[in-house]
Amino acid sequence: MVEPVIQSRVEPTSGSTEPVIALAAARKVYRSGSLEFEALRGIDLEIVEGEYVAIMGPSGSGKSTIMNILGCLDTLSSGTYRLGGDDVNDLDEIDLAQIRNQRIGFVFQQFNLLPSLSAWRNVELPMIYGKVHRDERKLRAQRALERVGLGDRLANRPGELSGGQQQRVAVARALVGEPTMILADEPTGNLDSVSTRDVLGLFDELHELGRTIVLITHEIEVAERARRIVRVRDGEIVTDEVNAA
């Protein structure tokens, strides 16, 4: 059977008091020779299922480090990171790869689509590593592209799509594996205002459907679309408030 691709609202799992993301006293220190740079200076952050959170800060504030940690692309120097209830601190590279594959859907500023592959081949990539059967992969990739409004662009290569369309392909790729959260790193950084509205509208819709979205940005206009804004500066959380707007 083919699993539905976020066509319907995600029902919160029973007793969902456990946050999807829980960072506790998270510290990250980069060493370069004798130089030490403390990118995260003890961060506590909890995000529950279905939240739409923007992590905001100027460059050098540590938001990219947070993104790498949340995306399991990097590990903490100290403190704990629990993703969906599991401690991912001490996992090896292979387990981290599996966690990224199963629980996280990335959307990058640079889109990061493979230029030689058609739209649906790009979308099926995470499922290839997730050992999903071939026929099901194609079907799910098609549905995900239909979901982001590109049902008629399945066979187009990235070079034949506009920036906004490319980013929607990337969002489809992030959605297709039914991840615990969608992690978007400056998703509108390379887009014009029309495409920006387009992609942010898509995030709104996904949020309405109950997806957990973490969006990292330095633009207040983008951050204001989220329901909760976490501001970081110099490796620490400055404010963490519900977006009234």
Partner: peptide, 16 residues
């Protein structure tokens, strides 16, 4: 290199 990074981010283990 970028493609490798992307594949890893999407869940490709080192052996793949």
């Amino acid at each position: 290199t970028r493609e490798i990074g992307l594949r890893k981010a999407l869940g490709a283990p080192p052996w793949a």
